[in-house]
Write a protein that binds this DNA or RNA. Sequence first.
RNA 1: GCACCCGUAGUUCAACGGAUAGAACGGAGGCCUCCGGAGCCUCAGGUAGAGGUUCGAUUCCUCUCGGGUGCACCA
Length: 583
Amino acid sequence: MLFPSLIQERLAQALLRSGLDIPASFEPSVTAAQDTRFGDYQSNAAMVLAKQLRCNPRETASAIASAFEGGDLCDAPEIAGPGFLNFRLRPAAFSAALAAILTDSRQGVPQASPPRRIVVDFSAPNVAKPMHVGHIRSTIIGDCLARTARFLGHEVTTDNHIGDWGTQFGMILHGWKTLLDAEALEADPVAELLRIYKEINTLCKEDETVRDQCRAELVALQAGDPENLKIWKTCVDLSIAGLGKLYDRLDVSFDHWLGESHYNDRLAPLVEDLIARSVARESEGAICIFFTEHPALAEKPCLIRKADGGFLYATTDLATIDFRIEQWQAEEIWYVVGAPQQLHFQQIFESVRLAAAAGRGPATPPALRHIAHGSILGADRKLMKTRSGDNVQLADVLDEAITRARAVVEEKNPDLPAAEKDEIASIIGIGAVKFAELSQHRMTDYIFSWEKMLALQGDTAPYLQYSSVRIQSIFRKLEGPAPDWTALDPTSFTFQDESETRLLRLLARFAEVVPSVLDDHRPNLLAGYLLELAGAFHAFFAACPVLKAEVSARTSRLALCAATNKVLQTGLGLLGIRVPKRM
RNA sequence: GCACCCGUAGUUCAACGGAUAGAACGGAGGCCUCCGGAGCCUCAGGUAGAGGUUCGAUUCCUCUCGGGUGCACCA
């Protein structure tokens, strides 16, 4: 049940009846009122129209209002301020929405129509180096967007485009051959790979000959040297196993792990084809795509083949797009990648456009979107460099989060079985880390802080989880089965307290909020909504007894509790956050 | 040099061009022997600056100041 759409339909009909000269393209917008004093929903249609028609906005509003027929949804809107149309829904409409949340498997969230085939490219760490905190943003935002798109009915393919090929393997190969400690590798492969990477990295900076040796190893690898290929494969397998453990802890999964190496065979023919189509040309020995008619990119060509014949990651990205079109018929590709790579994606997207114009690929290439996010900065306000390898490890962050959560569980609930405490601590700790990320605008840069990332109080996941846990606790105490909501007549609901109606209003908005996440790819809209919902729930819960209420109010309040719990669990699920039974 | 991102309470963050700019943390003060106090209720406190677009600007445009980032053979 989507109130803005329902109101919008009636508003559109009112416009036709109003006698106003409505432009054909005009669509009235209806949004939730920001302040309940103004009603439940509002529209600025009269003001927008008045501007176009050059007439008085309040008179326009009045004409629309008197032509408006709300049926059993609401009465005619009130006119307020400069010409707002304010709608107040009938209590029965909210009761119906509540019933829908309780009985509908989608909590009233509409199915996307038409569904799109979307490839979500996120996380994409380089192998042979463990993930540090900087990787958390793409991983968690991407996972949330993929979950949300799926929930809305889109056909989603997630692909972890890992960095499993390229220059860094020259260093790793050289390090493997000269520095490897077999025992250490056995004990903790990822740590040992990191160690040799860091050591070689340092040596390279100091010593020219080491750098040359690394380069030679890389050339050998790319030329197909069997020994190097074998070592490379071993490294990749070990890294993937290590990454897998981390993703398991994060409850993040991918449909595919098609890394850069997967596209090696496509690179040379791709470049040849682009040359043949005059999309790319030689310049200073390299093969480049120039964007002459694009002012911002006029002096920023995209290199797709080096003078030495080697390929670059732009080449791989272009080949990857081909693959995703051929294999998955992608209609959209979302790249959840940090903002510093904006130029790169501009170049890639523009290259695809040029190639398509030159007859390469399908007539309508997929919509390509760079879903950029800000950076996590070190204490010095500088970027955490992916390459330096000495940043805070993601695994350490998760460990610490769980340790802290475990301590709180111990304090609050000492009598729980140890295994359950561990389980709860994991759910709470990981949830806190994820929510810290998802609750802020994705473009915001922030300085890494244990305190911020691991907070358990205030606007955090544990606050939301706690809300759900309290509701679950009520239903455990209920003694006897919960009401059968499908058999209940929604008109029997009664709500008097202001905290009840506020909660009800928010519950009904879930159906609006979930789709809005994908409008601009912003999980923080959902996170913010859930905080607001939980806040409204706690206020209600503090003000209104549920189990001890008299019978008529009791069922209605139980319904609010059940619906709140459903929305919290579904919403947190879309954020990739689980909810314990107790905490 | 060209391009992109960001400047909001003491702090960390919100706010499809909408009405009196919201939270949280920190600070001050409260919460009945009642469903779990990871909670609830008060109070204090803010849009970097200057123009412009408009009925209306934190939001869009221009400039200034201040912070960050990216730009030819790494990924």
